[in-house]
Amino acid sequence: MRNTFTIVQRVTAIAIDIALGAYLFSVLWFVLYPALIENPSAQLPNIYGYVLTMLFACAFATAGALGASLGRLFVTGKASNGMRRTIQIHLGWILLLVTIVSGWIVTDISPSEFFSSEGLRGAGRIFSALITPQFDIISAALSAMVETVYIALMSTIIAVPASFILAFPAARNLMQGSVAARAVYSVLRAFLNIVRSMEPIIWAIIFSVWVGIGPFAGMLALVVHTVASLTKLYSEQIEDVKEGPIEAISATGASQLQVMWFAIVPQCVIPFLSFTIYRWDINVRMATIIGFVGGGGIGTLLTQYQGLSKFHEVGTLVIVITLVVWILDVISARIRAALQ
């Protein structure tokens, strides 16, 4: 039983254990210890913390090497013998407990503030302000909402052609021909993943410096993120097409471009449309959030009133946003259902 692991599995298990050991000790040292010991000045210098973390990680890894490793839980589904299993389970519980306790400390969870009388009065004030909206600003709110919807619409419209073209080199099944094709595929996919994992709000900050605060910055931010995510969705659809029509069109002597246009695109048009409408729906929500960092539209208006503590006006904006997002959500769901 012991020797059923390959070198790679054993190394992986030890690596996982080093990481878990280091995590466990750093949490104990840097979070729990300062929080639970009354006098922070009594703390040892942090350098000892790092050294002890490394030692603890090594100790954990040694345990891993002995076979009591938590890492083994991830490396293989096989149960080890009884005692080792018990150690693994105890270690697992300790990790979970330590994580929850330190998480409580790090996020400053404080029930006393949540239920304090002053806090509750504040909550009462803001809720009553929100439900008694100030409709004097309704025309400004609506025009800002229109701006937001158009930011979403334009960013989607601009992103679609780019995504459509990029989707083909990003589809694995079309890029198997040569080493160069596979390289293009891998680089493009990696690039898109990086762009996609940067939230639109970060792109909005970048573009608000680039082109100045306003709807144009918000739209550019959404274009970038939309291209990255639509390309992924489109290319996965292309990977799903039936091979038969591709063979049939190729057999007539069609060029690669003709094969894409006549055999692949017709199979993808409906799902592409569906993804696009769904994405526009998402973009309306994102355009609202992007407004908070200077991306224009109703989000910008909302932060202004919130900064002035004008909560009656904030209430109006919240109602407008909720209604419009809800209506667009229903419409988009209807259209997508009809397209199926």
Partner: peptide, 16 residues
């Protein structure tokens, strides 16, 4: 290829 016609078990037309 253009000199050779081909038909298939599943017809492989562009359905839409």
């Amino acid at each position: 290829r253009s000199r050779i016609g081909m038909i298939f078990q599943d017809f492989n037309l562009i359905g839409r």
